[in-house]
């Protein structure tokens, strides 16, 4: 009233300067900044570099034509087949991984008996998550070359089973997505409040129908997130493709049944295409490798960040 005529001093932050710190602390502080900014610069550099190469070399022609045999980069065609291969393989892998991952998460969170088995399964999934994909691939080749799995791939005249196909590669790829789907489903289920379950039981619903009608719908965003991350991983993996899909130039069908023939057949993906067209592979067509890598990068980033953007938008609608 009487003294409020002059403006008051406003304090948000008092003096707290890094300059007053001892030298080692200042060095550590600036190292933190340097590392943080450094990471941003590396990421920006990587994206800009790929963008530059992508805009330079990607053309509709490349995307819509198949690879071909040729002596230089102008003759070797595009990467339609690898692009389709990535899509098919990702779908196969995800379709196998979702039921497995969701079922396991439900069993762990809602039943989890016997406790020991549940704990073993959880560790098992961690082991799968930690197993190098090259080992998964090479194991898959061993497994699926067995006679009983001949329906999944190609049996040569001598009776040897090739073990290489979209189905076998997809089966192993599902193991890459499994831990991600499992973890995010488990988190989502654990966050469902106990009252929700109790309310459903109070209505006389059984546990199983509670899971189906209440828990799975509630956990759906978590399942979706895990699935998107898993798809990103599958699309980005190369080792399993090189070993289990054959990395053939075209999609080679096996048999004549419409979809099955493709699934049993071999092919390539964007990752193996990039690998084979780099100086490390046989193709050595850097421009094509860059173009395919750019498309691959877009795809993987869309899978990793698309869910974020979608969920942010839906949250805004609710608020």
């Amino acid at each position: 009233m009487s003294t409020s005529t002059q403006p008051k001093v406003v304090h948000r932050r008092g003096k707290d300067t890094v300059k007053s710190w001892p030298l080692p602390d200042r060095i550590a502080y600036f190292s933190c900044w340097a590392v943080g900014i450094g990471l941003c610069l590396v990421a920006a550099g990587l994206i800009l570099f790929m963008l530059n190469k992508g805009l330079q070399y990607v053309s509709l022609d490349l995307i819509f034509s198949n690879p071909a045999v040729g002596s230089d980069q102008s003759q070797t065609g595009g990467f339609l087949a690898p692009l389709l291969g990535t899509v098919i393989l990702t779908l196969v892998g995800t379709i196998i991984a979702i039921p497995l991952g969701v079922a396991t998460a439900i069993w762990i969170v809602e039943y989890g008996r016997p406790t020991r088995l549940a704990r073993a399964v959880e560790s098992g999934i961690e082991v799968v998550a930690g197993t190098p994909s090259i080992v998964l691939g090479i194991f898959g080749l061993l497994l699926f070359s067995n006679g009983i799995f001949s329906f999944m791939s190609f049996r040569a005249l001598g009776g040897a089973v090739a073990g290489r196909s979209f189905l076998t590669a997809g089966a192993m790829m599902s193991l890459i997505a499994l831990p991600l789907i499992f973890t995010s489903t488990r988190e989502a289920l654990q966050q469902v409040p106990a009252q929700v379950r109790e309310a459903s039981y109070a209505l006389g619903k059984t546990k199983w129908s509670t899971i189906r009608k209440v828990l799975i719908p509630t956990a759906r965003p978590g399942i979706l997130t895990g699935t998107a991350l898993g798809m990103g991983r599958i699309a980005g993996d190369t080792a399993i493709v090189v070993i289990l899909l054959g990395a053939t130039m075209q999609i080679e069908k096996v048999g004549s049944a419409p979809i099955v023939s493709t699934l049993r057949g071999t092919g390539s993906t964007l990752t193996s295409y990039v690998y084979n067209n780099s100086p490390a592979g046989e193709g050595n067509a850097p421009q094509k490798a860059y173009a395919a890598a750019f498309v691959l990068l877009l795809l993987v980033l869309a899978l990793n960040f698309g869910i974020d953007i979608l969920s942010r938008r839906s949250k805004k609608e609710i608020v």
Partner: peptide, 19 residues
């Protein structure tokens, strides 16, 4: 956000190093 003043032995505490 704060307005007004706090002193320690007569010195404004906002002018002292936080540490």
């Amino acid at each position: 956000v704060a307005t007004g003043s706090i002193t320690l032995n007569g010195d404004d505490i906002h002018a002292l190093e936080a540490t």
